[in-house]
Design a binder for these strands. Structure first.
Lengths: 246, 246
DNA sequence: GAGTGGTCTAGACCACGAG
DNA sequence: TCGTGGTCTAGACCACTCA
């Protein structure tokens, strides 16, 4: 194993696992760790970025690096099996803001939605906040050709579910939803909106909903910080415990 | 916008988009680009890593940085709608190797599969290669309690579909499959097996298949390089063009 | 204001690939 | 062998947080 910072990451991972620094505690300062491991600061920071991407630590500019509680992730799911559990665990702590406006489709957006360049589209921008810091970004597009929807009220979902409810209420039926997921670094805009550096991985979800005629009725671009989010897809029947409780 | 390398990434993205360097061409050397942008090499390399994570360029150690053909990604999908297209486009170019062995579940694995620590489990390691370089890593686990399967033959899938076929042939019925997807940096082992640096984002897929009694019959850990892979989930009815062709 | 992380410099040296 | 990318150094300076 050649890389110095991989060695350090492995060692720090082990130290966290054995409880050297309990959950919520601050790690020693980066300078001190660098001295301890006899490396320069950029090298040590590479190691910390790896741990951050695994959700093991949380970096707080000006305060320090803190051990995160495991399993505290926001979940984007295709089903709502355990809606009650989910809400109480994570989504309840998230407040969502939504801005609505009409835009004209540029080249990229027209390709994504399958509409003409320049045609009007309603854009919804959902930003999920946990405390003061943004945690999710969802941009949702509905062509005016499909429907001219109003502004969603009583927003609970950070993924724009309300727009789909509005669509449904307007009589638009979704026949098929395709979700394409990639891992990458955020663009400049995304990094600024999510208050993360552009060197921390994000999950990018492109969701396209079509009707029976294969016309795109809704397109969504979701950007989720990799260290505190997960995507969950469940296929097949509901678990037995739920079937029993019916 | 504060970061120097974000500016550079934006500018290079634009230059690639307008065709300054055609697909397959080499970019100027990092030293020359650093001189041109009046930054140090680490700063310029940060910009290039962002472009790499978007699949825009491919880094070849010793050769240079090359403009990649867009849309050339391996696809991990939950459906096999367009199996024919997929195979010819991507999977056909991928050769897959599989190693099989029996391991005893350690703490992490026992938690993942819901079996006792130390209980025997069959491990399949699938490595997908494109040319000489590895492109995908799939580790699949089947507890001996569930079934003792043989070695798969005629491997075509890089995602271990053959193991699921063996399971099915052994009479084990999957009632439900849950797939959990996160974005992170690879671990040391994963980076070594995939021939990538541990600073390039990967998609991590944890797949758990259970039977009607909620017993885990198969667990899979997939690691996919973020710059050349995508996960595709489709829900709802098949598209009309396929329905018509029936 | 003291301490922390965030970014960047101007190099050095190593590892890889192709001729 | 030579040009390329990969890693690392030993600092500097700025931005943020909190007392």
């Amino acid at each position: 194993m050649a890389n110095r910072y991989e060695h350090i990451a492995d060692d720090l991972r082990r130290l966290i696992a054995v409880g050297t620094w309990p959950t919520g505690d601050r790690l020693p300062a980066e300078q001190e760790l660098a001295t301890r491991y006899k490396v320069s600061t950029p090298t040590l920071r590479n190691a910390l970025e790896v741990l951050q991407s695994e959700g093991l630590i949380e970096k707080r500019h000006g305060s320090g690096n803190f051990v995160r509680r495991p399993g505290q992730r926001m979940t984007y799911a295709n089903t709502r099996f355990d809606e009650a559990e989910q809400r109480s665990a994570t989504v309840a702590a998230v407040s969502v803001r939504c801005d609505t406006r009409t835009v004209e489709a540029d080249g990229q957006l027209s390709l994504f939605l399958g509409v003409d360049v320049g045609s009007p589209v309603t854009e919804y921008v959902f930003v999920g906040h946990q405390g003061t810091s943004p945690r999710s970004l969802a941009r949702i597009y509905v062509p005016h050709v499909v429907a001219r929807l109003g502004v969603p009220t009583a927003i609970e979902s950070a993924w724009g579910d309300e727009v789909r409810e509005l669509l449904s209420a307007a009589g638009v039926r979704v026949a098929r939803t395709a979700e394409r997921i990639t891992a990458r670094f955020p663009t400049t805009t995304e990094a600024r909106m999510l208050h993360i550096t552009s060197r921390s991985p994000v999950l990018a979800v492109e969701r396209v909903s079509t009707d029976r005629a294969e016309r795109v009725v809704e397109g969504a671009l979701l950007v989720l910080p990799g260290d505190r989010t997960e995507v969950l897809f469940t296929t097949g029947s509901a678990p037995e415990r739920l079937e029993r409780s019916r």
